[in-house]
Design a protein around this nucleic acid. Sequence first.
DNA 1: GTAAGACCTGTAGGTACTACAGCTTCAAGG
DNA 2: CCTTGAAGCTGTAGTACCTACAGGTCTTAC
Lengths: 142, 142
Amino acid sequence: MAEITASRALPIGEASRRTGVNIETIRYYERIGVMADPARTQAGHRAYTLDQIKRLAFIKRSRELGFSLAEIRALLALVDAGGATCAEVHHMTTEHLANVRHKIADLRAMERVLKDMAAECSRGDVPECPIIDALFDAGNGR
Amino acid sequence: MAEITASRALPIGEASRRTGVNIETIRYYERIGVMADPARTQAGHRAYTLDQIKRLAFIKRSRELGFSLAEIRALLALVDAGGATCAEVHHMTTEHLANVRHKIADLRAMERVLKDMAAECSRGDVPECPIIDALFDAGNGR
DNA sequence: GTAAGACCTGTAGGTACTACAGCTTCAAGG
DNA sequence: CCTTGAAGCTGTAGTACCTACAGGTCTTAC
């Protein structure tokens, strides 16, 4: 539907549908300056070009990969400056990758402890619980 | 210092030092009702008992394991009610564990994609970057 | 006595949204 | 032509979990 290039300016609802980004979120991105202000119709409705929708999709994709809006802003600035060298982008990506790996390590440490705690629990209908004890004692044990 | 049991009421700074919880955070926990209001000195300074400090350590430990404050509130309510059955606590823990594992899976998916993107990048001093392309195209490709 | 440090309250900011309220505009049917 | 419902608009407030002031009081050590 509306695959013909003639459809130059799309309303926000269509932008949302095409990118999967919530309408309120699109307006939020505009407010904080991650998305440039789009053109407006006479009535004041936002009118998006296909390029702007591509940009929105870029943001979405980057968010899905865990980039912060600040990082995305920097990536887009690199793209816009034209002088986005591959090396710079690579640097940002590997930094972010290190971040993600750090988070994974943290979560895996949590996972281990939670698993062990749960394993020691009788699941019984009794008031004594080794999980609660563990939660209390770890603070003490230090 | 002050290791003798006679030290019954400790100021907030000492509570912070003993638990590793930031002073402002302790006050925040009090404000939102996760920590009960402590006794006060004549001057209005907070005076913590060792039990309250244990409770604070419990919250810290639980936060480190990724429990939300809402979950911690529920855990503490179970403890306080006295009827904290092991089964209930076990249920909350395994639910949270599932949550943690889900997050790990998400992050690992991110990690894979980021790693692959970075690997395809020449790191060169050139404006064409496969990372940027990937970020733009994935949104399109759907 | 005084000066540094610890404590107090209350408010604002940060991140990334989401959800209203209360209004205007557009599109289609009767 | 008019109405109705969907979609759009602005602006504000709420979510989670803190953190960081500002501007004051109190305690402690010299």
